[in-house]
Amino acid sequence: MNRFETVFERPAFIAFTVAGDPDPATSRVVAQTLIQSGADILELGIPFSDPVGDGPVIQRADERALCAGATTDSAFALVRDVRRESDVPVVLLVYCNTVFARGPERFYREAKEAGVDGILIVDMPIEEADMVLAYATETGIAPIFTVTPTTPPERVKKIAAHAGGFLYLVSLSGVTGKRETLSEAALPLIQSVREETDMPLALGFGIATETHARQAVAAGADGVIVGSAIVEIVERHVGDAKGMERELSDYISRMKAAVVGSVPADEDQNSV
């Protein structure tokens, strides 16, 4: 039943989009295109009015989605749509108040019913996670946590002890957004976290190019997460669904090839 188990048998490409961006119908097309073009895991952000962990690109996506009427219910509806057509694991990226407002018990139950596999709560560090961990266990939804270059080794252990699915390695200090080069902290981060845990490690924040993806996988990442670069393509093509589909599928296919091509499938023995 755990959809993550097979995904990390080879390096995985994880694609992010904001649920409801730029509008409900186009958002469905975006999700389908990401999956059809090769995303191994779909990460859906539920838009929030005050996304402190996000840079300008994803902030604008949240605003577009909310203006177009996105709600928690419409995000769950999008997950159900995805589920009808695909078995790809779906991870929700949410801010704490979205979960708190609905009540954690109900949020996890409805997420489960919709077909969600993992939930990452951006502004919920492990110390505050007691309010959700029991429901994660109860529903079997993987509680996904982030580790950053400033997370000390002891803390990585503590986080890994509670985390499920995979660890989300944040490549830099700061917020989401494309960067020219992979952060200097990124590759040492993969190596140092690897010493603390056997969980699959997916690297995100600032990853936009095939070179970034290859470097991450070569350094031992089990997965590569791309967000702002995808959201930017969506933004550039608001009102031009065909052009968006074309550019997205081209971009995702290239990124996926870079991720998968880096390491032969059966060489990656670290995956759980």
Binding site: E127, T151, P152
Partner: peptide
């Protein structure tokens, strides 16, 4: 329960990037 609570209120609900 973590530090910095006033009854149930307060806490440290920040992204991991701010924990350090």
């Amino acid at each position: 329960m973590s530090n910095g609570r006033f009854g149930d209120y307060g806490g440290q609900f920040v992204p991991e990037t701010l924990m350090a």
